[in-house]
């Protein structure tokens, strides 16, 4: 499923990534677009998770509450 390989070359002062297409059919522009879309998506995931993880953990905690597996 992965079509692009990403290597992080530097993290300071900017994050520098090297993208390599894994198949010949993937064009540089497509790889760039795909990667940027992925980064935006994950950025959004992290922002939402930060706001909602308390609620999520409470509900997951409820699901496991009678299993005897909590608190270990």
């Amino acid at each position: 499923m992965a079509t692009v390989d990403v290597r992080i070359l530097a993290t300071e002062p900017e994050i520098l990534c090297e993208l390599r297409a894994l198949d010949k059919g993937t064009k540089a522009a497509d790889a760039d677009l795909k990667f940027r879309r992925e980064v935006t998506d994950h950025q959004l995931r992290m922002a939402i998770e930060e706001r909602t993880s308390g609620y999520r953990d409470l509900i997951l905690g409820l699901a496991f509450s009678k299993t005897g597996l909590q608190g270990g």
């Binding site: 900017e14 994050i15 993208l19 760039d32 980064v39 950025q43 922002a47």
Partner: peptide, 13 residues
Amino acid sequence: MILSLASPFQRPV
């Protein structure tokens, strides 16, 4: 291809 991103994992401002 080398791509530079400004702090991709920071929250958007």
